[in-house]
């Protein structure tokens, strides 16, 4: 199950959870908490976008965040690797921890944090460089490879894990932007995992892809779960139901309900969740 990884964070893997990684209905109650948001409030200027959100992200689980546009799900996702720092008027209150360490602590190096908590965006955004360089860039600037062979190895492994290697192995020198949309997105995922992150954030990673490319990315998400913790924002309820083990429903800046994906989609507790997932929001 465990593929040897460059930075297997030994301190975080202290309590490995025995589970079948491919079983959809894994017991989630006992899993280790990888990230935790406590009383998270986010403001854009005077406008409050998130209200006291408390949400645990479990290790080796896919957690999907769903909710109507403007409900705060992307905002919450972005607080997890401090992407909101790039917005001047954005202010975050409350605690967000990664392995019990507050990521908003002044001692935290944001660049290092984003290496540990990687991100994949809605639109595939490969660098205007070769396929090889797209993946090699991160490990190189983070000093993860000592030799050229090391780097080549990381690139190959990352592309393999992203399910792209066989499609591109003969043309690693060609520009990444020349790939199809679905391939570009998997290239971006390869780029994200090349720096051996612990958590991968995905902001609607399939919304610009056709169904086949979507299926490939979803298959990939399921495989990546063995080694990473994944948080995905998606507008497709079916996708949330397919790929995640935990689902959190946001509405108007509040976390309404969080639970096992199976429960949320067959028997949600809150009327607002029920109304949203059945298409009754008025």
């Amino acid at each position: 199950m465990a593929i040897d990884m460059a930075n297997t964070t030994s301190e975080t893997n202290a309590a490995p959870v025995a589970q079948d990684a491919h079983s959809a209905s894994v017991s989630t109650a006992t899993s280790k908490i990888k990230m935790r948001g406590q009383d998270v409030c986010v403001y854009y200027g005077d406008k409050q976008a998130l209200f006291d959100v408390n949400l645990d992200i479990r290790q080796n689980h896919v957690t999907s965040l769903i909710g109507p546009s403007g409900c705060g799900k992307s905002t919450f996702l972005r607080t997890l690797n401090r992407m909101n720092d790039t917005i001047d008027i954005c202010r975050v209150e409350g605690d967000i921890t990664l392995d019990q360490e507050n990521i908003y602590d002044p001692s935290i190096d944001v660049v290092e944090l984003r290496a540990r908590v990687g991100m994949v965006f809605q639109k595939p955004n490969p660098f205007p460089k070769s396929i090889f360089e797209n993946v090699a860039y991160g490990p190189r600037i983070h000093g993860l490879a000592k030799t050229k062979t090391d780097l080549e190895e990381i690139v190959a492994t990352s592309l393999q894990r992203a399910g792209l290697f066989n499609e591109v192995k003969d043309r690693l020198d060609e520009p990444g932007t020349g790939l199809s949309g679905g391939q570009q997105q998997r290239l971006c995922i390869a780029r994200a995992i090349a720096v051996s992150p612990e958590v991968i954030l995905m902001d609607e990673p399939c919304s610009a892809l056709d169904p086949i490319a979507t299926a490939k990315v979803e298959e990939l998400i399921d495989e990546l779960r063995e080694n990473y913790t994944i948080v995905i924002v998606t507008h497709s309820m079916q996708q949330a139901a397919r790929v995640s083990q935990r689902t959190a429903f946001f509405h108007m800046g509040n976390l309404v309900e969080e639970g096992n994906t199976d429960d949320i989609f067959t028997n949600p507790n809150d009327q607002r969740t029920q109304d949203y997932i059945t298409g009754r929001f008025g």
């Binding site: 309820m237 989609f265 067959t266 028997n267 949600p268 969740t273 029920q274 997932i277 059945t278």
Partner: peptide, 9 residues
């Protein structure tokens, strides 16, 4: 329609 929750039930 891929019904969900109460609709599915």
């Amino acid at each position: 329609r891929q019904p969900m929750a109460s609709d599915l039930r």
